[in-house]
Design a protein around this nucleic acid. Structure first.
Length: 291
DNA sequence: TGTAACGTGCTA
DNA sequence: TAGCACGTTACA
């Protein structure tokens, strides 16, 4: 709005920034870039520089970086397909191109698992998984990527028996072979802030302290009436970016704008909180839990 | 207590 | 509808 740099400059900055973002957050942890000012969070305030001259559109950047998540999703597909069967959604095959260009092997296990949980629909599957993990309730170790799909929406307690007829609608939730998810869907409470465990769920296992912690977060989310501040997903390319461009309006107006650098703005937070129960499957197909 | 950053209303 | 400004929240 200030137009200090002129429109064309802003565009170029964006593309240059994007190029940098690609190399910075996607495939490497290049410490050579981080010689600039850092805040205590490790965020670098770095003016756009010559290092950004080889650039590409942010959309390209995002597409490329999303490949890492795509690979993770591909792994998850096998597991999610059983759910897809009940929804009619058609699985997609991740292009081999994505597999070859990701270089995501540097991602640690946690990030990979989180990637599997990441939902482009703005839902907080990663948060839900974290809560589950804390409560010692995540899927058996034999299959760390064995994740069910879950959806969030307005504050709502979900009863699978009421809405779905039976747990068989959730193949991954079936405890039949000992590798399924051992909890009834009705034990979950879905809120705009994420998926949480309902009271009874925590009595099934896990350390008491962590149960209480998860329960506390549950209460917090509920008492907040869904108004609780959303947090950055930490998984999307912008979130993984650690450099403030110092050029965008948010950076320039940081003191008054109180906004994060536009290039670091979480993709999930850009979206409006979902009001429905629709989630995006790793296959890219929308999936509505109920209705 | 300071900083970072989300939510939201206002304005162009 | 996007961007800005301000209030507010979260966290170290």
């Amino acid at each position: 709005m200030s137009g200090s740099g002129g429109p064309s400059e802003g565009t170029q900055n964006a593309t240059e920034e994007s190029r940098d973002m690609q190399s910075d957050s996607c495939c490497r942890e290049d410490s050579t870039l981080v010689t600039e000012r850092r805040n205590r969070s490790g965020i670098i305030s770095e003016p756009l520089s010559k290092s950004l001259k080889r650039s590409r559109a942010i959309s390209q950047y995002i597409a490329t970086c999303s490949a890492a998540a795509a690979v993770a999703n591909a792994n998850a597909n096998r597991l999610v397909q059983s759910s897809i069967v009940s929804t009619g959604a058609k699985p997609q095959t991740v292009p081999a191109q994505h597999r070859s260009q990701t270089g995501h092997s540097k991602l640690d296990r946690g990030a990979l698992v989180s990637g599997l949980l990441d939902s482009p629909s703005g839902l907080h599957l990663a948060q839900a998984a974290e809560l589950l993990r804390r409560a010692g309730m995540l899927l058996p170790m034999g299959d760390p990527t064995g994740l069910g799909v879950s959806g969030v929406g307005d504050l709502e307690t979900v009863s699978a028996s009421d809405s779905l007829g039976s747990v068989t609608d959730f193949p991954l939730l079936s405890n039949g072979g000992g590798s399924g998810f051992p909890f009834h869907p009705g034990l979950f409470i879905m809120t705009p802030a994420g998926v949480f465990l309902a009271d009874g769920a925590l009595s099934h296992g896990g350390g008491l302290t962590e149960q209480q912690q998860a329960q506390s977060e549950l209460s917090s989310a509920i008492n907040g009436n869904g108004k609780k501040k959303r947090k950055r997903c930490g998984l999307c390319p912008p979130c993984r970016r650690r450099i403030n461009c110092e050029q965008c309006s948010s950076c320039r107006n940081r003191k008054t704008g109180h906004q994060i650098c536009k290039f670091r703005k979480c993709e999930e937070l850009k979206k409006k909180p979902s009001g429905g129960l629709e989630v995006m499957l790793p296959t890219g197909a929308p999936f509505r839990w109920f209705q």
